[in-house]
């Protein structure tokens, strides 16, 4: 707050501090990545707008049904602003979007931002839990597998993971429903309980959807990390140096190989996180979860393009942020980048 009242004094006291912080490689990286994100987000929104415009039929027709007269449709189009040329509508949308207003749903008449907020929380919980579960299991399994490559544990875990990777998530979801909801009746197939209502109930209702998303991720991370660890252990000279010091294999694995492998893992997790938020659509659909994917699917079916547009934008923002986060973590952890040699 002193900055606001006595800017001159503050600048005197720590003239280089802020400048140094802004000029630090980390800050430069954030700035650069955020700047790079702007054209991506613009591109995505233009592309969405354009693509949605290609689709014959609009919300007015959809709302009024097939029996509506052309006059009725035209009146509603005017009310909804659908009669204006595309670029006008896009610029109008963009103008309010930058202020955080994503418009009102053509179908429900509700503000899109609030609608998306609730949905995003559900999808976020789903994805977040899936990541925690999958990474929490994959890291120890991969470490154990890489500790003695070619042994029983390694072989079994690799077989399980390639099998798991070959199961499409909708297939897995349906099989989970068939087994745990229909046959064993352990978990509900549908019936989402909000977190605000009951934490236990919420987790119970989330168990199957989280499992459906987490299992393929677990398989993927296990394979990725195990493969990278083994590559490091067998192919990298610094591992030989470490072994030549006389330290134990556990230390070589954890302090050396895992440390180096974790960078690759972070990147992959960041990329996945970005794409996954949009990838929950089917699981949300099967388990009737009120997430953002389901919202988008509904909006697609009702031609509620304002909502679709907003959903796509949210997906893109999440993807950009997740990648940025991964890059930042990477930069914080990897000295080669931290010290700006690359």
């Amino acid at each position: 707050m002193t900055v606001a009242t006595r800017p001159g004094a503050d600048a005197d006291r720590a003239p280089g501090r802020l400048a140094a912080l802004l000029a630090s490689p980390g800050a430069r990286l954030v700035g650069k990545r955020l700047l790079m994100a702007v054209p991506i987000l613009l591109g995505v929104s233009v592309l969405t707008f354009w693509v949605l415009n290609l689709i014959p039929g609009n919300a007015a027709q959809q709302l009024l049904g097939p029996e509506a007269t052309p006059e009725q449709v035209r009146t509603l189009e005017q009310q909804l602003g659908l009669d204006q040329p595309g670029y006008v509508r896009y610029l109008g949308w963009l103008g309010s979007a930058v202020t955080g207003d994503l418009g009102t749903s053509l179908v429900s008449g509700q503000p899109v931002t609030s609608q998306i907020g609730e949905r995003l929380a559900v999808s976020g919980e789903l994805v977040g839990l899936a990541f925690v579960v999958s990474l929490g299991l994959a890291i120890p399994v991969a470490l154990l597998a890489a500790y003695k490559p070619g042994r029983m544990f390694d072989r079994v875990s690799m077989l399980v993971s390639i099998t798991g990777l070959s199961v499409a998530n909708y297939v897995l979801a349906l099989l989970l429903v068939l087994l745990f909801a229909v046959e064993l009746a352990l978990f509900p197939a549908i019936g989402f309980v909000p977190l605000s209502e009951s934490v236990a109930g919420n987790l119970h209702s989330m168990a199957l959807p989280v499992a459906a998303i987490a299992f393929p991720l677990f398989c993927f991370y296990t394979r990725f990390l195990r493969g990278d660890l083994v590559d490091q252990l067998q192919g990298e000279d610094y591992v030989t140096t470490a072994r030549a010091k006389g330290i134990g294999p556990g230390q070589v694995l954890l302090r050396h190989a895992f440390r180096n492998s974790s960078f690759g893992l972070i990147t992959v997790v960041g990329l996945n996180l970005g794409t996954l938020i949009g990838g929950t659509v089917i699981v949300e659909q099967i388990f009737a979860l009120p997430g953002i994917g389901q919202l988008m699917l509904q909006a697609i079916n009702t031609r509620d393009f304002v909502v679709v547009q907003a959903c796509v934008l949210v997906f893109a923002i999440v993807a950009v942020l997740a990648n940025l986060l991964a890059d930042l973590l990477y930069a914080v952890l990897d000295p080669r980048i931290r010290y700006g040699s690359r």
């Binding site: 000279d237 610094y238 140096t241 440390r259 180096n260």
Partner: peptide, 10 residues
């Protein structure tokens, strides 16, 4: 090869 024989992240 000293470039590859040291752990780059330590």
């Amino acid at each position: 090869d000293p470039a590859r024989s040291l752990n780059p992240t330590m």
